[in-house]
Amino acid sequence: MPDSRPGPEPANEPEQGADVIPIGTSGRPGRGSGRARPSESARNLAGPRRTPRSKPPASPGPPPADAPVEPVETPVEPSPEPPAATSSTSAADRDPTAGIPAGDWLDAFKQAAMELFDDDWERRLAEFLAFLRRRLEGGYAVDEYGFDQEMTERFFLAALRPIAEKWFRIEVRGVENIPAEGGALIVSNHSGTVPVDGLMTMAVVHDRTGRFLRPLAADLIFRLPAVSSLARRSGATLACSEDAERMLRGGELVGVWPEGFKGIGKPFSERYKLQRFGRGGFVSAALRTGVPIVPLSVVGAEEIYPLVGNLPSLARLLGVPYIPITPLFPWLGPLGLVPLPSKWLVEFGEPIRTDAYDPAEAEDPMLVFNVTDQVRETIQQTLYALLRERGPVFG
């Protein structure tokens, strides 16, 4: 009877790409197909080759003739790497649950102090730590108006100084007209939508003379929760004749901006045109105390927030003098609150003496009006002169 089993496949028959691995072959390539090489499908199904575990031979003897010959992989030992630069405490030597050693904290703190306080870091760091201890213990003094001299000098004026020097590039003239001691009244124009000019004047006066300028502020400032406390601690007080006269008699340097909200809230089209100086209350205070009046002209503040519009109805609803609209605010949101970097010129004029008058003459309305007009005209003419000298607004 002829044998019905299929014979061996011809040697030159091309391999097919869709061989099926029979059940029970455990997925090993080549088993069940009768070939030494696995098909493409078997290679894809087998996955990456795993190195078999070494087993002792059951019995010596030659392998079967049809067993596939697998290449033997020789393990390659990694070459030793050069040791890395070690710090004071390496991660390998450190217990992972121990955290950062105290020595590393001290080294990092010392390096940060040297970068912050320069070469004199030990003394300045000790002063700073002593300052913090006094603040926490309440060991600091304020005067009868709430002025905190240490806080103002170390933090408030220190924060304003780089703005005055780097952002507005303030050029100061006539600083010799500020008295080195004793009471004096500095009278300035007011502008800028937000009273930044008053803050810059405080920084300039202290940096050039070492004296603290005590501003007379509107009552609105002291109705604002956070601003009120900051204003008191930085030396401001309510703009009233009683407080102004007490400060002047006490030898303080007092600053006043008679235009008030009419000056800082005027449209950009009326820039550098002085508004009415009120009823001359600052002149009456100077006449009663006999202190000099120093006119101050500030050019540059008008351009930091150009006022092009207002919302009076909303302002009345919120109880504020005006709601400003500038080319950047409120269109750019918080970014629109950044002041434009205009070039500033600040000039202190020649003092106007009042000690030649009798204190009782402060009740003479005609005298008060004449002195007020003299101060106002001096500031206005100086503004025109500074505008011609300044050149480009942002130059």
Results as ranks from 00 to 15, higher is better:
Leu238Glu: 12
Lys266Leu: 02
Gly255Ala: 10
Leu253Pro: 03
Ser284Pro: 05
Ser284Asp: 10
Glu242Leu: 12
Arg279Phe: 14
Leu238Ser: 11
Gly260Gln: 04
Ser269Met: 03
Leu248Ile: 07
Arg276Gly: 13
Lys266Gln: 10
Thr237Tyr: 09
Ala244Ile: 06
Val254Trp: 03
Glu245Gln: 13
Val283Met: 01
Lys262Asp: 14
Phe261Ile: 10
Gly265Pro: 05
Gly255Met: 10
Lys262His: 15
Leu248Asp: 05
Ala236Pro: 06
Glu252Ile: 06
Gly280Asn: 08
Leu274Asn: 01
Asp243Tyr: 09
Glu245Phe: 05
Tyr272Ala: 03
Met247Ala: 09
Gly255His: 08
Ser241Ile: 13
Ser241Leu: 13
Ser284Arg: 15
Pro267Arg: 00
Ala236Cys: 14
Trp257Arg: 11
Leu238Gly: 10
Val254Met: 06
Gly278Leu: 04
Gly250Asp: 13
Leu253Ser: 04
Leu253Met: 09
Pro267His: 00
Asp243Leu: 11
Ala244Leu: 05
Glu270Met: 13
Phe277Ile: 02
Gly265Val: 02
Lys273Glu: 15
Met247Lys: 09
Arg279His: 15
Gly281Trp: 03
Arg271Leu: 00
Glu242Arg: 13
Leu238Phe: 04
Ser241Thr: 11
Val254Asp: 01
Gly278Pro: 03
Arg279Tyr: 14
Gly263Leu: 03
Tyr272Gly: 02
Glu259Gln: 02
Thr237Lys: 05
Gly263Lys: 04
Ala244Lys: 01
Gly281Gln: 01
Ser269Pro: 01
Val254Ser: 02
Gly260His: 06
Arg279Asn: 15
